[in-house]
Design a binder for these strands. Structure first.
Lengths: 121, 121
DNA sequence: GAGCTAATTGAAAAACATTTTCGATTAGCG
DNA sequence: CGCTAATCGAAAATGTTTTTCAATTAGCTC
């Protein structure tokens, strides 16, 4: 983070701390965990972190959500209760990416699975 | 559409027509194709169509996009020029969904691939 | 540790996106 | 043709994100 000439301010540390507490939080949830940081700064810090690749921005249907990008994982979203859970195991067949005949250099992907969680069935 | 007691108004037909012209359009693009329909009605019609399962709502990083949900497909997004292309062939291994040990009933999924398109390399 | 400077912050305002309200209009029925 | 619930549109309200700009501060230098 300092490499790029960015300062390690208490506000940025607070936002990172909030992100570390739970994955895929909305901006309001993050803000709730660091009330001492101004709203504008939360917005700015999140877009900086996304730009630096430290944080991933999601959109699972309801507005934006953010999570630390440390590990590769995917989401299962329950259409009934809205619960979001994660799984590591990537069910993609690497042989089939990029798709045949596509002139495309794959760098990353995101996969979301929708359905019903155990509790809702 | 009529089954549920909904009326087939010219405005709704116009929005559907706009959606048929191109996939994954933003609301502004859709609106540009049916200027005779009020903005509020475009919003309302799109959320109705999404609710009915006729239209899919996407978020590929820039705001909301909409497309007819007739066929199952995925998106490749060029991180350089922003171009969005589609592919049908699903590279998911059905054996691995839901992931092991997950108590989850899978109903659908969405997959987006990010990278660089042929033109940008 | 004090001083300097560019980066950062926060409050207010601006810009943009979406939803609500409510009176006027209309599709689809008999 | 007439009726009525559904729909529409314009304005206002609400919600979200960005910009502006003066004040503050992290991190460097000495």
């Amino acid at each position: 983070m300092r490499g790029g000439g960015y300062k390690a301010t208490p506000q940025r540390m607070a936002v990172l701390g909030a992100l570390a507490e739970e994955q895929h939080q909305s901006l309001e949830e993050i803000r709730g965990r660091c009330l001492e940081v101004g709203l504008v700064t939360v917005y700015r810090t999140l877009s900086l972190l996304v730009e630096l690749g430290i944080v991933r921005r999601l959109d699972l249907g309801d507005g934006a959500r953010y999570e630390l990008a440390e590990d590769h994982h995917h989401h299962m979203i329950c259409e009934s209760c809205g619960d979001i859970s994660e799984f590591e195991e990537c069910p993609l067949d690497p042989e089939r990416l990029p798709p045949e005949n596509a002139d495309f250099e794959v760098r990353s992907h995101s996969l979301e699975v929708y359905g019903r969680c155990g509790a809702c069935r």
